[in-house]
């Protein structure tokens, strides 16, 4: 599915991040497959939402694209280059175009630097002031993200969480990037501040034609910001499609359960709806279940699900899912189960 198309800004091909654990004398080396062969296109100007539970590998995937974590296999195609295999020095230059916003605005800003220094650092590193003063560029950036331009001499602790996240966004924007990985940018913020940051990011995207990979476990936020959504489970993408379609008509049993678990702020709806409650926790990625990783929690799992690794295939136009019990002819798993269909996909 990862064709090279000029609408694509980035193409991930079978990207892998495997960590070695254990080892040593008489001990076997095990691998944690944090990202286990992800192929994905990110289109120019879109927001691709990446959702999943903790430990599913979504942050690792985001970091691997920017080489903040080294991929152990696969490719990240960008402008004709494979970022996963360029030298560190080349990668450093590429970070002019690819930036990241982090989750914790308390931990991702150096407490000993002033805001002016924090936002100015990438400008100085890449010599991007174009003869003008760095100070002025910093002040303009602060204004862009809704901070008072006079505050350049202040330190991070003098700002609230939402303001700090704005500083993090200004720092990412300082190099005028094309693509930003936003890793849980609103999770640490209060509800009223979350809306501000989501709106700010949407505004910046319109003005600067940015492309976002928006990583979050908050399904309500993803529905709001994302054009397309990728659902991740234990290192693999299990469903991908237009945000609207995925939320209205999810194909995968896992996605269905995820969406049904989100509490809706309306007591009348809450009183009527029935939840799909998944049993158990996300299994350990050290020793994930064989076949389809979700089979241990899936109410529709059959023996083959423990054997066959499902591929991500197009079930409906532009709507992909990885499940052996659905196909483009029979996309509804409940009906397939009722009709006794076994393995029909892949």
């Amino acid at each position: 599915m990862a064709e090279n198309n000029e609408n694509n800004l980035l193409s991930l091909k079978n990207l892998q991040v495997h960590y070695k654990i254990g080892g040593g004398l008489f001990k076997t080396i095990k691998h944690v497959k944090a990202v286990d062969g992800v192929s994905l296109d990110i289109k120019k100007g879109e927001t691709l939402g990446l959702v999943g539970e903790s430990g599913c590998g979504k942050s690792t995937l985001g970091k691997a694209i920017l080489r903040l974590t080294e991929p152990t296999g696969g490719q990240v195609l960008y402008n004709g280059k494979d970022l996963a295999n360029v030298s560190q020095k080349q990668m450093r230059d590429e970070r002019k175009n690819l930036q990241m916003i982090f989750q914790d605005p308390y931990a991702s800003l150096n407490p000993r630097m002033t805001v002016g220094q924090i936002i100015g650092e990438p400008i100085r590193t890449f010599n991007l002031s174009n003869g003008g003063s760095v100070e002025e560029k910093v002040q303009n950036l602060m204004e862009t993200v809704g901070l008072n331009r006079r505050f350049t001499k202040r330190y991070p602790h003098e700002f609230s969480g939402g303001q700090r996240q704005r500083i993090g966004i200004a720092r990412a924007l300082a190099v005028d990037p094309e693509f930003i990985v936003a890793d849980e940018p609103i999770s640490a913020l209060d509800v009223s501040i979350q809306a501000q940051i989501m709106n700010l990011m949407a505004k910046l995207q319109r003005e600067k034609n940015l492309t976002y990979l928006f990583i979050s476990h908050d399904l309500r936020a993803i529905r709001h910001v994302a054009d397309r959504v990728a659902v991740m489970y234990l290192g693999r993408i299990v469903e991908l499609g237009q945000a609207k379609t995925v939320y209205a008509e999810p194909l995968m049993p896992y996605t269905k359960a995820l969406i049904s678990a989100v509490p809706i702020p309306d007591p009348e709806i809450e009183a009527k709806r029935t939840r799909i409650i998944l049993k158990g926790d996300v299994p350990s990625p050290i020793n994930p279940p064989s076949g389809c990783h979700f089979n241990t929690r899936c109410q529709y799992a059959i023996a083959e699900c423990r054997r066959i690794e499902p591929k991500l295939v197009e079930i409906k136009p532009q709507h992909f899912a990885a499940c052996i019990r659905i196909s483009s002819e029979n996309p509804h798993i409940e009906e397939n189960v009722k009709n006794g269909l076994g393995v029909i996909g892949n």
Binding site: E53, L219, I277
Partner: peptide, 10 residues
């Protein structure tokens, strides 16, 4: 996580 949240609230 949401799926665990649903379990605990239930």
């Amino acid at each position: 996580d949401v799926t665990i949240q649903a379990q605990i609230l239930e």
